[in-house]
Amino acid sequence: MSKRKELKLQKQKQIMEENGIIYLDNVTKAYSKGSPAINGITLNIYRGEFVFIVGDSGSGKSTLIRLLLRELTATSGSVYVMGQDLAQIKHRKIPTFRRNLGVVFQDFRLLNDRNVYENVAFAQRVVETPNREIRHNVPAVLATVGLAGKYKAKTTQLSGGEQQRVALARALVNNPSILLADEPTGNLDPHNSWEIMSLLEEINQRGTTVVVVTHNREIVNTMKKRVIAMKKGVIVSDMEEGIYDDNEED
């Protein structure tokens, strides 16, 4: 490894240890029209944390997730994920960066023309995992999310809860350091919502940092995790073992 690369990694490690695995330093994101979607946010999320991000529509939650995915870049301020300044990542290096993150969406975003196994295996093929390892890893992760018996099923034949579990398995199969879940229970009934949340908690207990954007008051209030509430692009509260407060949303 070159001296320069070594120094860069050292610096990244230092930023991560001092400021967290996710670190936003006075970040503003403005679109062309209207007031900024995110306005001067500073935020530290440390390795192994389980964090809820709550807030009403237009509060800036989705923009935050898109910034963390490097789908957007900040208008001002810096976004660091795993110590890397995302503004400094070149376009061709974005895929490599994203491989550190697992992502789950409200609408599952599965490849509906492929079966359960292929959807999960796809994430491994993308990172050029040898077939032998794929054949071992995919059944293992499907077993974790309780879908070992349905690996051959088409995703369209599954219930919403099962589809979200496939998405979760796909997000986890590459052992990401961070799992970002954008409204993961938004399309699910209470029973399936709780099953997904239990899985997320289990994943967090294994050491993965989990960030969940949600509207689900009951889940947030029951789970007693760190809760960051956003309103009109700013953080209005950040509490350990917090709750989703009605007053904050209004």
């Binding site: 895929p95 490599t96 491989r99 975003r109 796809f122 993308v126």
Partner: peptide, 12 residues
Amino acid sequence: NIMKYIGAKDFF
């Protein structure tokens, strides 16, 4: 989009 979110390179 899904491929890109997962971390697929442009070539892939």
